[in-house]
Design a protein around this nucleic acid. Structure first.
Lengths: 216, 216
DNA sequence: GTCTATAATAGGATAGAC
DNA sequence: GTCTATCCTATTATAGAC
């Protein structure tokens, strides 16, 4: 019954290798576009073996999404705990989030795709509940930061929920946009130089918007 | 052979009813999540009848996406042709785009989902080529507007491709975000009051960013 | 923990009657 | 232009041997 490995064990468990394979495939083709046969094939297992680790497909999907969201949550907590002014914390968080999305090219796509599946993650299984919890935690912390900054005058007064949607749109979307983003930019969104540029453009946009001051 | 109806005919063609049904379903469950059986059922036809109007599933999908993109293209062209300063044209365009997305709740989801399907729209069929053309046309016009505004000093100097990605992220994403957006906002993203608020928040964000001037 | 075998269903697509 | 019938393959999931 003990599936936990000793900490000095370097082997990656079957469960994690299944999650890795499923994550990549879900990013590429979405929930319905991925068959468990293909997941098993990538991992190097028989199809039926997957059901020993996850009781069905929705649970596997929720486990993939949950793992991503927990990592984002951890990153956010670490960033916020490091202190600084609200502006510093916001900019550091967005920087770290972008780094995380770039280091794990499947994340942005899996996340946005999952937001579009209103049905497929709405169950009562523990993995699905965990997804909801992580989302609420992340958005709660980000919202609190925005409110603190607006209260102290560091941020312009704005509608907090709409600002949260805006922040998700400008940070996550570009790294999920695949060929579209590549065509717009004329190069890979994940290339280091392009990532640096995106971070800079994001900071500038948050500081000044787009419209020049003379026009206001 | 003539499938074209006389202009005084009020009946909606089977082809259009198939496109309508497919659009709604693709928005809900994505390309792979929709079976042609279900599309046919919604329209009230047998599954095989669909193949008389579209030769296969990829073509139907491309036709759905193409119809949406053409409407956005038309809206953009009309807006840009109406003249005004770059700031006026940009703000009018975003306003009109949001109205279009709100009037057609499937649009945002179908569009963003299609951007995540690098494979499923990359063929050589005329419908797929048309999708590419419309995207290039829309992004070309928007990019030209940005460059014009930056040249005249109306917009802050910024990286045009990244700004395009940002604009897509802040305009389209919220209306594709479904339950997530609903939870963040505490209400329906498509409710008239919320749409008005989003338009206002968008204008403010473009004019001032998020960070207060005192902090700069 | 992984395997083979199997069940039951749904998928896209075609042929041909009407 | 729509239908029924059919083909072949893939899907999720289970049972039970090893």
């Amino acid at each position: 019954m003990s599936t936990a490995l000793p900490i000095w064990n370097n082997e990656i468990s079957s469960r994690d290798r299944i999650l890795d394979a499923a994550e990549t495939l879900f990013a590429k083709r979405g929930y319905s576009g991925v068959g468990l046969r293909e997941v098993a094939e990538v991992v190097g297992l028989g199809k039926s073996s997957l059901f020993h680790h996850f009781k069905n497909k929705p649970q596997l999907y929720a486990a993939v999404c949950g793992r991503i969201l927990r990592r984002i949550e951890e990153s956010l907590m670490r960033t916020l705990a490091a202190g600084g002014t609200p502006v510093e914390r916001l900019e550091r968080w967005l920087d770290d989030l972008l780094s995380l999305l770039v280091d794990n090219p499947s994340y942005a796509r899996v996340l946005l795709r999952s937001l579009f599946e209103d049905d497929d993650l709405a169950g009562e299984m523990p993995e699905e509940v965990e997804v909801e919890r992580a989302i609420a935690s992340i958005m709660g912390s980000a919202g609190a930061l925005l409110r603190e900054g607006m209260g102290s005058g560091a941020f312009r007064p704005a509608n907090v929920p709409h600002t949260l949607l805006t922040l998700v749109g400008i940070t996550v979307f570009p790294f999920a946009s695949g060929d579209f983003g590549r065509e717009i930019l004329g190069g890979d969104v994940f290339a280091p130089a392009e990532v640096q540029r995106r971070k800079q453009e994001l900071r500038d946009f948050l500081r000044s918007g787009l419209i020049a001051r003379a026009e206001r």
